[in-house]
Every structure is written in C-alpha cells, then in structure tokens.
Design a protein around this nucleic acid. Structure first.
Lengths: 192, 192
DNA sequence: CGGTCTCTTGACGGAGTTCAAAGCTAGTGG
DNA sequence: CCACTAGCTTTGAACTCCGTCAAGAGACCG
C-alpha cells in the first residue's frame, strides 16, 4: 500500500524510517470509483492526493462549455489544485477520476502535521511544485510554437501509456484542438 | 533602495527587523543596461533577481527561430528560471532586459544563506512559486480557449502599463500570434 | 540626414473549426 | 447470449482565423 509512495518520496528527499511511519499514519487510503468529480470550479480544494492505482484528470471549462484538460495523472503522481489548497482560494478547475482509483489522501490538516513533524517533506513538495512549473512553462511554449501533428507526436512520446487508457477526445482537449482534427491528424500520420 | 522589496516581503510573511537587515546585507544591488542578455539557453541560471526599476522578459526560441515570450516583469517582480536555479539544470529559456534596470540580485549562495538564517523567507518563495504556477495554468487555458482579440483585451486589462513600455511585437510573441495579426486585431478593435 | 527598427496594410494560402452523418465499441438489460 | 443504446471515432465539405510574404510609412538614433 505504501511501496509506491515510499519509493517516490526517496527520489526527492532522505526520510528516516520514522518520517515514513509518520506519513503512513497520517495519509488516508481511499478507493474512488470511475467518473467521480473530486473538485468543481468555485470550491476550495481540500486534498492533495497521491495515485496508487488509476487515472485522474484536471481540466477547465470555458464560457462556451468547452473543456481544456490541464493534466492527466496516473500511478505515482500527485493531484491537487495547489494554489487553492495552500491559500484557501476558490479554484477555477475541475478534477475527476477517469478510472477506478486507489489513492493516498492528505487534507490541509494532515499535510500541516506531516510538514511540521517531518520537515524533510518540505523539500519534496517544493521541488514538485517547481518541476510542475517548469513543465507547464515548456508546454505553454509548445502549445504556441508547434503544429497539431507535432504536439500529438510529442505527447505520445512523453506519455505513451495515456492514449491506451483515456478517450481520444480528452487528449485533443489536452493538446488544444478539436477531437475531429485529432482524428484527421492521426489518419494522416498513419498513412506515412 | 530597499523600500519596494521590504513592502513586497511583508505581503507574504512577517519578517523581523533582523530578517530584513539580513536580506539587505546579502542581496546585491546592480544596475544593468537595456538589451542585456542575463541568461541564454543551455546555461544554468545563477540568479534570482527582484526588479526595483526597469523591465525584463523571459522567452523561448523555437526551431524556426521564432521567439515566444513567457513573461514580462517590471518593478516589484522576481525574475529567474526557478527550476534551473534550484536544481542546477540547463535552462531552455533566455532572459533579457528591455529597459535600463536597477535590481536586487540573489545568487545560489546568498539565497541559501538567507533561507538558512531567516527561514521566514521560505514561505515567501514557496507562495511565489505556487502563484506563478497557478497563473501560468490559467494562461495556458486562455491560450487554448480564446481568440486573438480576447487574448489581447485580457492582456491590456491585466497589464495596462506593459503596452506603453514594450514594443508591440513582443506582446504578440507573448500572446502567441504574429505581430502582423496583432496589428490587424488592434485596428479592428479601434474601429468599434 | 541615412539607416535600422517597428508598425501597418493587403493578397493569398494553409491549418484548424464547425456541422452533419455514419460507423464502431462497450456496457446494459432482457 | 443477443439486442439496444449511448458515447466515441472517423470522414467530408464549407468556412474562419491566423500566418506568410511583401511593400510602404513612420519613428528614433547616431
């Protein structure tokens, strides 16, 4: 149950066995079924969760009702609206499970206790946010500077397992164009 | 010289006079002339600077040589490639001054000393990164979900002083379309 | 003054959208 | 185990937005 998260934590910091025990004691194990909405626009995000099994996505909805997917998260990823969680502000995004999930769940309360009693986790969360920032900066760059075909090829190279797990129109909404056009791009690419 | 940064710091944390004195002692005051390249792709970013006066931009360059502006920073903003600075990785971006600047300059060394001796600054930097992340997430959303005219109107509302300070083609490269098209959008808008 | 940089304007082309229809696939209930 | 439905993907035609190229007009600086 904690094998994956222990491995994950050790990539970013050097926890003692005590630190890990504390984490195991504080973090809550949950099962969540497919298509569950974990966060809606306007709410304050009260969780930071680690995926042991399953797939979750964050997305925005624009005025026309179109969805823009911000992130697909699978085993070994953290999911939250970090700004909303930390500053108790109203979120603009939605978070929903795409598959049946098994997750480890921190609340504002348990996270605070964890950081207070085992400060080595500070480092981990700081690095995670920084990497997230730098990843999304480069994604913004690619969104502006590359064509649809380039974006798609780049995506399946970065996340080869995602296309096998999520519906294609979700990928289109991540890449920033219509599902119809993604379909056309794919047929064009496969003809080569 | 430290009036602006003191005010800034106090928005995010509650420093003692000692903390502020330490900051003043460690941070280096620099003048940098217009059109100076502070960071190039491939380098490791060795500064985190606070702008007292002037204007700086971060940008990427794609394979065709086109620039994509990531950020305009003016008085009261921090400028750095945070991931490169903190993890000593090679940066993919460029940072250059657009005006003559007067800045306060932290190196990896002085920042570490600062955080070590005045831990209250940890909180500030953490919140800054989080806000930056959430801002860029929403910008990615708008980049995908809105038209050129909407992006431009949103930009001049968010940053009304920027169009008066930087060349228009830089704004186009921030918004993600060609300078020619920005010009056309502007004439269309002004005819209404 | 002359050169460079910037902004504007127009014609044309191409990438991506929208709408509509049809084919597929998976899940559901009988 | 089959039949049905609902959601997903594909395909095509018409259209729109935006890019590219090229030319001209200012504006600024040495």
């Amino acid at each position: 149950m904690f094998a994956l998260i222990d491995l994950h934590v050790q990539k970013y910091t050097h926890p003692s066995q005590q630190d890990l025990d504390l984490l195991h004691a504080l973090i809550e194990h949950k099962k969540i079924s497919k298509k569950t909405l974990l966060l809606s626009e306007g709410e304050i995000c009260r969780f930071e969760l680690f995926i042991n099994k399953g797939c979750i996505r964050n997305y925005y909805i624009d005025e026309k009702g179109e969805e823009v997917t911000l992130q697909f998260a699978t085993e070994g990823w953290w999911v939250s609206d970090i700004a909303s969680f930390n500053e108790r502000t109203h979120s603009r995004m939605f978070i929903e499970t795409l598959e049946d999930c098994e997750v480890l769940w921190l609340t504002p309360d348990t996270k605070e206790k964890l950081l207070h009693q085992a400060p080595c986790f500070e480092r981990m969360f700081r690095i995670l946010v920084q990497r997230n920032l730098s990843r999304i900066q480069e994604r913004l760059f690619r969104t502006i500077a590359t064509t649809a075909a380039e974006k798609y090829l780049d995506f399946i190279e970065r996340y080869p397992e995602i296309p096998q797990r999520v519906a294609q129109h979700y990928i289109a909404s991540y890449l920033g164009f219509s599902p119809e056009f993604l379909s056309k791009v794919r047929t064009r690419l496969s003809k080569k």
